[in-house]
Structures are given as C-alpha cells and as structure tokens.
Design a binder for these strands. Structure first.
Ligand SMILES: [Mn+2]
Ligand SMILES: [Mn+2]
Ligand SMILES: [Mn+2]
Ligand SMILES: [Mn+2]
Lengths: 154, 154
DNA sequence: CGCAAAATGTAGCCATGGCATCACAATGGA
DNA sequence: TCCATTGTGATGCCATGGCTACATTTTGCG
C-alpha cells in the first residue's frame, strides 16, 4: 500500500466547494479559471479600443496589435462569437455585443487602475505597463476596490 | 484593396525586437512568455514545500494540492524533467535539480512579497492570497524591487 | 475597367494542459 | 505470507492557442 510511509501526513479532505475555495487547491483552481478568461478580456479591450479609435476592428489590425498572426486572431474571434461577446460580418470587421462592450469597459477600467496602483507604489512606468498586461486578469473586484481606495487616500 | 478605408490608420512598423518590446504587441508577447512559465513555477514552489515539509513530494500529493488529477500532475512533472528542473525515481517521488531549487526559492520569495504588497495597500487577506496565486507570475524583477522598497519604507 | 495587392478566411500541424481509464507496482495489515 | 488498497505510470481524448500554407474576397489604382 502506497499509504504514505508512515511519516508526516498532513491534514486532508475538504467538502466540494463551488465558489472560490480558500484551500490551496481551490486557489489554484480559481487561478486557472481566471486565466481562461484572460484572452477574451484582452481581445474585448483591444476591439473596443480599435472601434473607438479607428471606427473599425479588422482581424489584421487586431493581430498586429496583439503580436500574433491573423489566423490566430480569427480563431480567437470565433471563440469571442461563440461566447456571445462579439459579432462579425464576413470581410466587414468585428463588433462587440452588449456583453462584449460591458466586458471591455470593465477590463479597461481595471487595466488603468492596475497601472496606476503599480506606479503609485513606485514601479517604473515601463515595468508597470508591461506587468499590468498580465497582472490585470488576476485582480479580483475586491482587490480592485482596495486599489481604488489606496489611490484615493494617497 | 483591403488597404484601410482611407481612415485613421495609426503609426506602424517597429524593428524586430528580441527583448521585451515597449510596443503593445511586445507587451502581449512578453505576457505570453511569462504565462508559459507559470505552471513550472507553481510546481517547483509546491514540490520544494512538500520536500521541506513532508520530506517527499509524491505525484498524488502534488495533484491534490494543485486540484488536478494525478495524470495531469505526472505529465507536468515530465515537463519539469524535460526542462531540467526536476528528477524522479519511478515510484520514489520527485526531486528538484539545482536549477529547480533556485527557481522554487525565487518563486516563494516573490509569492510572499506579492501577498505582503497586496495586504499593505489594503487588500483583505483572503483576496490577497487568492489573487497573488495568479499575479505573482507576472511580477518582473523590477516591479518586485519596487514592492520591496515600498514595504520597507512603509 | 481590370487587376495586383492586401485583407480575410480555411485547413492542418503542433504543444500544452486538462480529463478518464486502464494496467502495473508497492506495501501494510490481516 | 498474501492480497486489498493505494500510488504510479501509460494512453488516449478533448479544448485552447500558437503557427504555416493556401484559397478566396475586396478594392484602390493604374
Ligand atoms: Mn492583459
Ligand atoms: Mn489590458
Ligand atoms: Mn501561482
Ligand atoms: Mn505561488
């Protein structure tokens, strides 16, 4: 029996939790869930920016801004459509649904707040811009509120 | 001609950059590179913890702590070995190489610092622990130094 | 006009990281 | 001792997100 060699076997179990489990496994699971949203968030934010700035969001522009090939961008756009975040008319560019616009707005606000927070604690501008691109996706609403309070009081 | 409808076409090009490009595409590329290390980092950190705490790191324990099946853990361990970060004797547990131990130490320090920083700016303990699990991987050395300075001066 | 260039879309390949399932190994306890 | 239980490992499946290569559509320009 592989039953642990009779040595230090730590505490176990924990009932099946649906929300964000406070256990270590639960934290990893939540981090994986969050990560699976990251790509959609970046696309939504970028598409909203292109629509607001250039009036249109074309696959090629999206791809260039993200540093991927257009084929990769088009596949991601397919996923955005499947998830109800975007629509696209063949050869006519990409648009955001209501849900997509809401997501984009939330993501943009969060992105800016994360950069501001990093700058506020002394992170150089370049590093703040770079790191925020990855960090943002893992900042929960609770944490975001804390960031906002911190910045206001500063 | 798909040449942009004669409308607002923003600035283009940028020579091929190898390090972390300051362009938007460069930031996304760097974020993707960082993300590809995240799994290895979490495994290294966890294995080091199990070795220090229980004296051994078994695939089943690793899997339980990460919230994945043992098959998933074993495949990740295969990648750790391939990357020169771990070794494993069949049915005898997993060990870290020098490189693996160095990575684990760096990752643990960074994890703790990220949690401390979040707490310092007012993030509740639970949210700090949760969000840090994903954020940590995107915190560069530059940013980490800024966090350390901020905490020291506080 | 008509056509070449650019954008778009499609297909197929690969690596990663989940999963379930099955077969084999190890071992503690009856 | 032996065997039921548990750990380990190997496969095979799927989804995601990169890529290249090729086909198709669009449209500005000569
Ligand atoms: Mn991002
Ligand atoms: Mn962003
Ligand atoms: Mn982590
Ligand atoms: Mn960690």
């Amino acid at each position: 029996m592989p039953r642990p060699p009779a040595d230090a076997r730590a505490a176990r179990d924990a009932p099946p939790e649906m929300p964000a489990a406070p256990t270590q496994a639960g934290r990893f699971e939540q981090a994986r869930r969050v990560q699976s949203m990251a790509l959609l968030e970046d696309y939504a934010e970028l598409i909203a920016d292109l629509l607001a700035t250039a009036g249109e969001a074309r696959p090629t522009d999206i791809a260039r801004r993200l540093g991927v090939t257009h084929a990769t961008a088009i596949k991601a756009i397919t996923r955005l459509k499947r998830e109800g975040l975007a629509t696209a008319l063949p050869y006519r560019g990409v648009f955001l649904t209501e849900a997509g616009e809401h997501l984009a707005a939330r993501v943009k606000t969060r992105h800016l707040l994360v950069v501001d927070l990093l700058r506020a604690v002394g992170v150089p501008a370049d590093a703040a811009e770079q790191d925020a691109e990855g960090i943002e996706h893992h900042v929960s609403d609770i944490t975001l509120e804390a960031f906002a309070r911190f910045l206001k009081e500063k």
